[in-house]
Design a protein around this nucleic acid. Structure first.
Lengths: 146, 146
DNA sequence: TAATTATATATAGCAAGGTATATAAATGGA
DNA sequence: TCCATTTATATACCTTGCTATATATAATTA
């Protein structure tokens, strides 16, 4: 018999939904959505990345990233410019507004993490992170070797 | 500086997406989607639950459940009948087809969990589950006390 | 070089989550 | 009993994800 309350997949889904709500509520005042924040994390590190590069770094489907970038351009977070060496590609450059959001947005995300891990020891926090990373690697292994 | 590869929230989102893909691929042949499976888990236990009861058990928004139930009725998984004691409510009853999916669907879900946790010791698996349950409780605590 | 193959984006369509509203039925008080 | 409040669903609209296709530009190869 299948007990969802001890199923890794069910718990992962539930936990991710709660994290998303927590983040969404805290970055909504910045006019930012969770997937936009995730994309900004990469652009804050390396501005001007192409859609394909972002797809590789964030492990989402190309179509998903295409739509997220379209909304980000619409919301004035990025500007898309033709790639100087590849006529098919576009570079995605942060706007001043997007750059200004780095500090408040990352603080909001850290606050959610802190609230989520409240009461866990440092050892437990590290264990959770490492176990999730291990699980992610396992899942990627079984679904990619296509 | 914010490192997404060690952020509980980011990892939870990534892990949940990978679990969802794994489950979706395995239950697609049954003409079943992940949220439908999650809902069936409750109905297999207690047939005839109302929308409000399912909302409470699965911790999703009422509107989300309303749409999921609509798709399940459309797909012949449930039949909705007026509640005998409450004119506002409807009871959701499993069809024969839905009952027949219990075994293959739960086996598919168990297979995904097994693939995800491959290589982890029993102790590590239990630790991951318990840490996720703890994190879920923390997040519920901070977002509900509305 | 011409033709094929691969790569970068875009778009359509659907599921699942969420917020915000609306409506109808049930409940509780005054 | 009548009115206000609560509860059960439904719906509209938005984001995020996915699959499947289509298109244009590179790259490769015959």
């Amino acid at each position: 018999m299948f007990d969802k309350d001890f199923s890794a997949g069910y718990l992962a889904n539930h936990m991710a939904r709660l994290f998303a709500i927590g983040l969404q509520r805290r970055i909504a005042p910045l006019n930012l959505a969770p997937a936009q924040f995730m994309t900004l994390l990469e652009l804050w590190e390396d501005d001007g990345l192409t859609q394909a590069e972002l797809v590789g770094r964030l492990d989402v489907e190309q179509a998903t990233m295409a739509n997220t970038l379209k909304r980000m351009a619409r919301d004035g977070l990025i500007e898309r410019k033709p790639h100087p060496k590849d006529g098919r590609a576009q570079q995605n450059w942060l706007t001043e507004r997007a750059r200004s959001l780095q500090e408040p947005a990352t603080k909001a995300a850290s606050a959610v993490n802190e609230a989520a891990l409240a009461g866990l020891t440092q050892w437990e926090r590290t264990a959770l992170i490492e176990l999730m990373r291990n699980t992610i690697a396992n899942l990627q292994k079984t679904q990619r070797p296509s």
